[in-house]
Design a protein around this nucleic acid. Structure first.
Lengths: 192, 192
DNA sequence: CGTTTACACTAGCGCTTGCTTGGTTGACCT
DNA sequence: AGGTCAACCAAGCAAGCGCTAGTGTAAACG
């Protein structure tokens, strides 16, 4: 068994698994379907992953790590203007939601299928990401750019953004930039 | 077979099914688990429902119908002030999300498990509900109470509200009324 | 050169799944 | 008393499930 490394082969298999998980859902995706998609036999799958659960964890882990690094990069690229930072975070969030769409949809829908161990590990990653949001929102609150309860505002914003995976069509006429701009405009306080 | 009626027995079974679907997810909930929860044997289940899918459809149908009627009642009870109507809708939405929590969680998470026929029927119900929101948002836009793109605003609002099922704790210190007030405040335009 | 390693295969075990079949029960109606 | 009917049960089928065991093979390594 070759389990628990992160070979490029495994990365690719993970990407393909994500697609199937989105199409069929985790439980309905059989190891035989996964193997076929990957061009191998079902038995060979367990050379790369300890069990089916681990494939799910790998998918979610990759998506969340990408989200985190994209958000960090976006924040570093902009100055300390609170509104600009809010905007950067919204844009970064929508960007991952598009490029790693499969992984994020899986994370949203199949989180509960994770066993305790994987859940604990991935919760940490997710918390780190949400902490980024809360920092930026705190800055905006302190500057008076937005108003309200920091906890509620951040939850509402995350909800609005994550919900986009259910209706947003990348081929449509609205760009991710449009969404980000509109969302921030919605948040902004009277005179800021 | 007794299929497709809406006897009180079936209503009760549907309610219990909703709870299990939330706990375990649709796919992981076996007909044997459902039967046990209902106090009957697995075979007897198919006296009330044609197949497992139909149980899912029944759960979602009930939740959506309740949401629709609660929202309609809430709108009838308030005058034509756009802000009050927004507020009433938000309160009604959170109210169903609490009283029919199980059904709505199932609707959010297991929608894709519906087959084409059930999906078509239930899409109609859901569209009717969303149309209610869009009307109220249009009124608020026309009155200048809020600003922005009607499509995006309504999607953002629905996202923020539906996302609450993932974090809101009814036992906590924040009331649904608090959430509704905060959300509407977040939407409101500079001078209105 | 011989050994190890990575990756894949075949074959199938043991179990669970959704659902069917054929029959029983007891309340109700005429 | 005889008939109806919803509600339930016992038993089990066919299919599919995750996963394992044991083997083959070609490249990489000492």
């Amino acid at each position: 068994m070759n389990v628990m490394n992160d070979s490029p082969r495994r990365k690719e298999l993970t990407r393909q698994a994500a697609q199937l998980f989105v199409q069929e859902g985790f439980d309905r995706t059989t190891v035989r379907m996964l193997a076929q998609e990957m061009g191998i036999k079902s038995g060979s799958l367990f050379h790369h992953f300890r069990d089916k659960q681990e494939i799910l964890a790998a998918v979610i882990e990759e998506g969340t790590e990408n989200a985190l690094s994209i958000a960090r990069a976006a924040l570093e690229e902009c100055d300390s203007d609170p509104e600009a930072r809010l905007h950067a975070m919204a844009r970064a969030h929508l960007a991952t939601l598009l490029t790693d769409r499969n992984a994020h949809v899986v994370a949203l829908y199949e989180w509960r299928r994770l066993d305790g161990q994987a859940r604990a590990h991935l919760s940490h990653l997710r918390d780190a990401y949400e902490a980024l949001w809360e920092t930026v929102i705190d800055e905006a609150l302190a500057a008076g750019v937005i108003q309200g309860d920091r906890f509620l505002v951040s939850r509402f914003v995350m909800g609005a953004l994550n919900w986009t995976v259910r209706w947003y069509d990348p081929e449509g006429e609205r760009s991710p930039e449009d969404l980000a701009r509109e969302l921030i405009a919605m948040l902004m306080s009277p005179r800021a």
